[in-house]
Write a protein that binds this DNA or RNA. Structure first.
Lengths: 171, 171
DNA sequence: ACTTGTCATGTTATTTTATATCATGTATGT
DNA sequence: ACATACATGATATAAAATAACATGACAAGT
């Protein structure tokens, strides 16, 4: 798939991904980076895993495990839920992808390699997802946690709303 | 089953916001406040809804819909999923309770009445949940959203880690 | 080449979480 | 007392996730 029917053209350079960009090259780059990472860290980027990551990168929005599974089937891989869930587990564990809890769905990571605690912006209309870096420890939550003596290990930060494109269209 | 092996002793000094307090009175107070709110806003705090809220307040930790359903059955209410989900939907919609997306579970609201965008701290060991006020619009995410032209309508903020008690015990 | 251990894949079955739908019941205002 | 809006109950099914077990690929050591 070379042109995503959902995403509108735009010439704007954007911080985090609601705007159009050279998608093919971005997928290529990200895949290559992931492979390199794997080699470096002694991980195995197998065909299923690679395929799932590629799908997520192509899509550039949250995909459910069963949508992924359908595509795996089409591509000739196993078609039972564990096949998809296992690939996703690998990708998520190694931060090549993230789970969006709010949607029970998955997205490719936009900042591969970077140690991160991601925050997401999810468009409720077109389901586009942009990833930003969260500074959980700094914000009000970090303060509250310190005050309460709570040790944050991991944080889910998911904002829901309207992406720029959908906001425009709404007017 | 009347005593869930998972659930902690329901004595009146369980942690809330990770701190011991007079639980019975806190439940009473919160229930009364909720009833008052309902009267004020023209909402109907029916028996099932009240019972579910009471359970959540008593428990003071995240409960799954089916755990709630079990208890409803014991209490003589309907025992099919929609009964629990509908009560929960009402409570969540009106902010008497919140859904913890990370756990597919529900907690009573700790700041009833206050207009809020909650943030949670979830202990991965004992499942206690504390609610804080999130200042999404102010933090890094708010800035990223403005930069990206994204309009935040709602945010899920859930930190996972160790509560003070479990941190102590771990040492 | 052969064996062994580790990790990945495939399949079956089941569990857990959540909704759609339709019938019935109950509270409230007129 | 009636209409009507909202709540509940029950049946059925969908959607998301995992357990358990068998098979296969592959690299490391002999």
């Amino acid at each position: 798939m070379t042109s995503d029917p959902q995403s509108p053209p735009s010439d704007h350079t954007s911080p985090v991904g609601f705007r159009a960009h050279d998608h093919d090259s971005c997928v290529e780059t990200a895949l290559a980076a992931a492979e390199a990472q794997c080699k470096e860290r002694g991980l195995r980027m197998t065909p299923v895993r690679r395929k799932v990551l590629e799908m997520l990168l192509q899509e550039h929005r949250a995909m459910g495990a069963y949508a992924i599974l359908d595509r795996l089937r089409e591509a000739g891989f196993g078609s039972q839920p564990p096949v998809a869930y296992r690939a996703l587990e690998f990708l998520v564990k190694n931060e090549f992808a993230h789970k969006i809890e709010r949607l029970n769905a998955f997205v490719a990571c936009s900042h591969p390699g970077a140690a991160h605690s991601p925050a997401f912006m999810i468009c409720r209309k077109c389901d586009a997802v942009a990833e930003a870096m969260a500074a959980t420890a700094k914000g009000g939550l970090g303060a509250a946690a310190r005050a309460a003596g709570f040790e944050i290990e991991r944080a889910v930060v998911e904002a829901e709303g309207l992406c720029p494109d959908c906001t425009e269209k709404a007017q």
